[in-house]
Design a protein around this nucleic acid. Structure first.
Lengths: 336, 336
DNA sequence: CTGAAAGCGCTTACAG
DNA sequence: CTGAAAGCGCTTACAG
């Protein structure tokens, strides 16, 4: 069932069918009606690949993400999808690029299938991108390690968010503040840890950083919590690099018979929906993930539509908001 | 940068370039090496749409979903994506088809872009599908209203899961069991409600069903909870059509100064990750969503590869598991 | 092994 | 307004 079948059945050329079905300029009303009637009757649907080949437009954007699973990516995809819909775009997603080779393959697979690319990848350093991105394909980077480059980039303000948490804990009177790390090479985590160390040094000089390993999963937070409660002196607050670890850590603290936040305050990062529901509710950093996705897509659209003015692309930081909840607000606050 | 550029630079025909880059059978090792070297140097990447047009393969499958957001869809997409990766397939997602027209447009947009389609849509009745699905495109239905048709279908065993919940509550001694509905025209909800009514009639004859409206959002569960606690006689258990409403309902019960499960037991449906973390932990039905996605994709693959034997497609029900947690296990159980 | 040619399904100048 | 023709970038029989 192709445009030829419609043309034959309607007794016109394929050119007329094409015109009738694409707005109809250049055909009489009668011709158009007849063609449309035939197309509908034959259930003709234009072939996307063929159309893309000639129009150079796919009305699709690609999203290369480390994963599709979990609160964070669910929310990110939602933001991207919502914005994409307002532009009439489809979404081609690709995930789990464990290695650089896989990430490269995924990028290549986008060639000729998308009008632009949204990339969030731990492999996305400058050399890798230059080597593997289809040339000329508009691209926007998300949560990238690049501070400024040929590509526009948007990131969560990890440093700013972490700073707000540590300042809040210090203001609430906590001093021995531990940090639970995320995956080793994760750039977001590195920024959060750096801000933790810097803020501690600035606002509570003389207090030593206490850093525990983690991997973003709840279990690693639980393990860190077990270590934590056994320390001498015991930390009186813990800042986990994400919410799931903070929640795992809370379980370990409770198991040890300690109270939150009286004995140990807990804070996380991300503000996943669950953060509001755990008990006590978790103090955390809201990162407006959907907004990040939306902003990235809008930035991509200005590139696709050629509206970018050629100036170097700034690296936009999405603001992070401190969400103070019960896990860090001691009624009998030590300060004041 | 097309295959022609590579051919010119390597001083061969485009046919040889094509052969060298697709496995290399039919070219000498030297020719192949030279061509590949040139292709790499020129950073040539084949144009996906052009290749799809001639090979009739896109190595992409489409997923039409009502939404991309939330635990359920996140998990579903994860299952689909994981399975797709093992087959080397990309994923084209489309969501939020509020109306039938939008759903039709989304289906049409898949034509020529995917090798097969996974459809989960409230608009997916038989007539609509026959009218709008690209003819000849392998399709698998998920959570459909169709019991058996020309399309293979997979669903959560809503009835079985709901039955398990109600039986469990009755066995635990609860009798005045209320049900909180989901969105009006949702077929999953209808199946759950029917099983609730049936099981109640069978296992606790004479007890009247108590049905409250809801829309799957937490707030509607909260509102239902407020109604619930004000009833005379007050229900002693509530079964919400999904977990988020159950969680909202729990908040209302607690606010009324009542205990869970001593005064009112609560159960949900879905087993979202959060269900384990609320306090008390929520009794619910685990629906193996990722497995549903994976099974749907595998079913689609047998169709795409022409392995289907032509017999009518069965409607597969994915088993649902009762997860008994503290929200329904009264220490001082009335029965025993 | 290698290349010229046809063709996938469409759109769009170009004539008439 | 309408149609014949070229062409998008690729693959694959078909000859040589």
């Amino acid at each position: 069932m192709t445009i030829k079948d419609v043309a034959r059945e309607a007794k016109v050329s394929v050119a007329s069918v094409s015109r009738a079905l694409n707005g109809g300029s250049g055909v009489t009303a009668e011709t158009m009606d007849r063609i449309r009637e035939v197309a509908a009757r034959l259930r003709y649907i234009p072939h996307g690949a063929a159309r893309s080949l000639i129009t150079r437009r796919t009305h699709t954007i690609g999203a290369l993400l480390p994963d599709l699973y979990g609160e964070f990516f669910s929310e990110l995809i939602r933001g991207i999808d919502l914005a994409a819909r307002t532009h009439g775009l489809q979404l081609l997603v690709s995930s789990s690029h464990d290695g650089a080779a896989e990430a490269a393959t995924a990028m290549h697979a986008m060639q000729g299938r998308v009008d632009g690319l949204l990339v969030m990848s731990p492999h996305a350093d400058a050399a890798f991108l230059r080597q593997n991105l289809p040339v000329g394909l508009p691209t926007v980077l998300m949560n990238t390690v690049l501070d400024r480059d040929d590509y526009p980039a948007l990131s969560v303000d990890n440093g700013g968010g972490a700073r707000l948490v540590v300042e809040h804990l210090i203001d609430a009177g906590y001093r021995r503040i531990a940090f639970i790390q995320g995956p080793a090479k994760n750039h977001d985590v590195a920024e959060r840890e750096q801000a933790y160390r810097d803020t501690l040094a600035e606002r509570a000089p003389g207090t030593a950083p206490i850093v525990l390993p983690g991997d973003f999963n709840e279990e690693s937070g639980y393990r860190a919590g077990r270590q934590l409660v056994a320390m001498h002196p015991r930390p009186d607050a813990v800042f986990a690099a994400n919410d799931m670890m903070a929640i795992g850590c809370m379980a370990a603290i409770r198991e040890a018979g300690l109270r939150i936040p009286e004995d140990i305050a807990v804070a996380g990062f991300d503000d996943v929906p669950m953060a509001r529901y755990v008990s006590p509710a978790l103090t955390t950093v809201g990162v407006r993930i959907a907004e990040l996705g939306k902003a990235a897509l809008e930035q991509l659209m200005t590139q696709i539509e050629g509206r970018h003015d050629g100036t170097p692309h700034a690296h936009v930081r999405m603001p992070a908001d401190l969400m103070i909840r019960a896990s860090s607000t001691n009624e009998r606050s030590r300060k004041t």
